[in-house]
């Protein structure tokens, strides 16, 4: 199992926009480089990408929660 960590501190979003579905759901196939969420830092949205392929294990950090750089946001099972 691999952790996906926050690339920057800020606010973590599961969805591309409030009206849309989360980027991933538990059990989804994940390819390397897939976007699984966004971190808003200083008015900039940074894409959070999976670094390994596998199956999405779910979000660890809540939607719209404040996260620190390096915090575990989600997991991928290989």
């Amino acid at each position: 199992m691999a952790d996906i960590q926050a690339p920057a501190p800020g606010t973590f979003y599961h969805r591309p926009s409030p009206e849309e579905d989360p980027f991933k759901a538990k059990g989804d196939t994940v390819a390397e480089g897939d976007v699984i969420g966004l971190v808003e830092v200083m008015k900039t949205f940074v894409e959070v990408k999976a670094e390994t392929a596998g199956t999405f294990g779910g979000y660890v950090a809540d939607n719209e929660s404040a996260v620190k750089a390096g915090a575990v946001l989600a997991t991928v099972e290989s």
């Binding site: 920057a8 830092v41 200083m42 750089a69």
Partner: peptide, 13 residues
């Protein structure tokens, strides 16, 4: 700005 020009100007507080 508190941004890293080497990382496409990624802001970092």
């Amino acid at each position: 700005n508190a941004e890293n020009p080497e990382l496409d100007f990624l802001p970092m507080p």
